Simulated scan of single mutants.
Amino acid sequence: MKSSTKDRAEGTFHELKGKAKEIAGRVTDNPTLEAEGTGEKIAGKVQGKIGQVKKVLGK
């Protein structure tokens, strides 16, 4: 699998996982879990963008 495709796939996975943690944190009234989910979601978006850049650059 190409590096760019792998980064985009992992980014999407982390976005979904972060969103789930964020919702779980809200439901259980756990601000720590909600913040952790938000951070992971943002990290997933960044990783997805890195994959897009790699694809454009041909890496």
Rank of each mutant, 00 (worst) to 15 (best):
residue 1 M to A: 12
residue 2 K to D: 07
residue 3 S to H: 03
residue 3 S to V: 01
residue 4 S to C: 06
residue 5 T to K: 10
residue 5 T to Q: 09
residue 5 T to R: 06
residue 5 T to W: 11
residue 6 K to L: 14
residue 6 K to P: 05
residue 6 K to N: 11
residue 6 K to S: 10
residue 7 D to M: 11
residue 8 R to I: 13
residue 8 R to D: 05
residue 10 E to S: 07
residue 10 E to Q: 03
residue 11 G to V: 00
residue 11 G to E: 02
residue 12 T to A: 04
residue 14 H to A: 03
residue 14 H to M: 02
residue 15 E to M: 11
residue 16 L to S: 13
residue 16 L to I: 11
residue 16 L to V: 13
residue 17 K to S: 12
residue 18 G to S: 00
residue 19 K to I: 07
residue 20 A to M: 13
residue 21 K to N: 08
residue 21 K to P: 04
residue 21 K to T: 02
residue 22 E to P: 10
residue 22 E to M: 13
residue 23 I to V: 13
residue 24 A to Q: 14
residue 25 G to C: 05
residue 25 G to Q: 02
residue 25 G to T: 08
residue 26 R to N: 08
residue 27 V to K: 15
residue 29 D to E: 12
residue 30 N to M: 08
residue 31 P to Q: 04
residue 31 P to E: 03
residue 32 T to L: 03
residue 33 L to M: 08
residue 33 L to F: 14
residue 33 L to E: 12
residue 34 E to Q: 14
residue 35 A to S: 10
residue 35 A to V: 11
residue 36 E to T: 14
residue 38 T to N: 07
residue 38 T to I: 05
residue 39 G to T: 00
residue 40 E to V: 03
residue 40 E to Y: 00
residue 41 K to G: 05
residue 41 K to W: 04
residue 42 I to S: 01
residue 42 I to P: 00
residue 44 G to V: 05
residue 44 G to Q: 12
residue 46 V to Y: 09
residue 47 Q to I: 00
residue 48 G to M: 08
residue 49 K to Q: 00
residue 49 K to I: 05
residue 49 K to H: 08
residue 50 I to W: 04
residue 50 I to Q: 02
residue 50 I to E: 03
residue 51 G to R: 08
residue 51 G to Y: 04
residue 51 G to V: 03
residue 52 Q to D: 15
residue 52 Q to G: 11
residue 52 Q to W: 09
residue 53 V to R: 01
residue 54 K to E: 09
residue 54 K to H: 08
residue 54 K to D: 07
residue 56 V to S: 13
residue 56 V to K: 08
residue 56 V to G: 03
residue 56 V to C: 05
residue 56 V to L: 15
residue 57 L to M: 10
residue 57 L to V: 02
residue 57 L to D: 01
residue 59 K to R: 10
residue 59 K to W: 15
